[in-house]
C-alpha cells in the first residue's frame, strides 16, 4: 500500500509508520480533525477470507474519503489508525475466524488524515457451511463509550 502524502492532508499532521500483521508497513499522516458519524447511516464493507476489500457501500466511501476504485482490492487495514492497538484487531480476527461475531469501538483513519469513531460488528459470511469472507457493519457510537476507549486504548500498546 502507498504511503500517505502531505498533499492529501488538510492542516497540521504528525507522521507515523504503521507495521501490519502481514509484515508490510506504511507511513501515515495523522491530523486531529474528527469527522462526525453521519446520522442514520450504516457503513458497510466486505472482504474476502484474507481481509481484502470486495465491497463497500456509499456511506463507507463518503466517510473514508477514498473512491470505490481506490478501496476495492486493498487490504482492510487501509483504515487502520495508529491510535488503535494491534491487540484489538488480533482479538477481532481470532473471534470472527472462530465463527463468532465481534463487536467493538474503532477509530478509523481517513484518506485525508482525519479520523472517525464507529461501533463495528464483524461477522463471517458463511455459505454452504464455509467461510467465504467477512462483513463489517458500523453504526454511530455512544460518546460515553468512545470516551472510555480514548482512555483505555493507549494502555493496550
Amino acid at each position: 500500500m502507498e504511503d500517505m502524502k502531505p498533499e492529501q492532508v488538510t492542516g497540521d499532521y504528525r507522521e507515523e509508520i504503521l507495521q501490519y500483521h502481514d509484515g508490510s508497513q506504511r507511513t501515515v499522516l495523522i491530523s486531529d480533525v474528527e469527522v462526525p458519524y453521519p446520522e442514520g447511516r450504516l457503513i458497510v464493507s466486505s472482504t474476502d477470507q484474507n481481509g481484502i476489500i470486495t465491497h463497500v457501500n456509499k456511506s463507507f466511501i463518503d466517510m473514508s474519503g477514498f473512491t470505490e476504485d481506490e478501496l476495492i482490492g486493498q487490504p482492510h487495514y487501509i483504515l487502520r489508525h495508529p491510535d488503535m492497538p494491534a491487540a484489538a484487531f488480533k482479538g477481532l480476527w481470532d473471534t470472527v475466524q472462530a465463527g463468532t461475531r465481534w463487536q467493538g469501538y474503532v477509530k478509523n483513519l481517513r484518506k485525508d488524515g482525519a479520523y472517525y469513531w464507529v461501533y463495528a460488528t464483524v461477522i463471517a459470511n458463511i455459505r454452504d457451511g464455509e467461510v467465504k469472507g467477512y462483513t463489517s457493519v458500523r453504526r454511530k457510537p455512544s460518546r460515553n463509550k468512545v470516551q472510555e476507549c480514548i482512555e483505555l486504548y493507549p494502555t493496550l500498546f
Binding site: L42, V44, S46, R101, T121, V122, I123, N125, R127, T135, V137, R139
Partner: peptide, 14 residues
Amino acid sequence: HEDVEFMIDLMSTL
C-alpha cells in the same frame, strides 16, 4: 440468492 444472503448477514449484525 447471494443478495438476500448478504441482507441476512447485515441484519444479523444488527
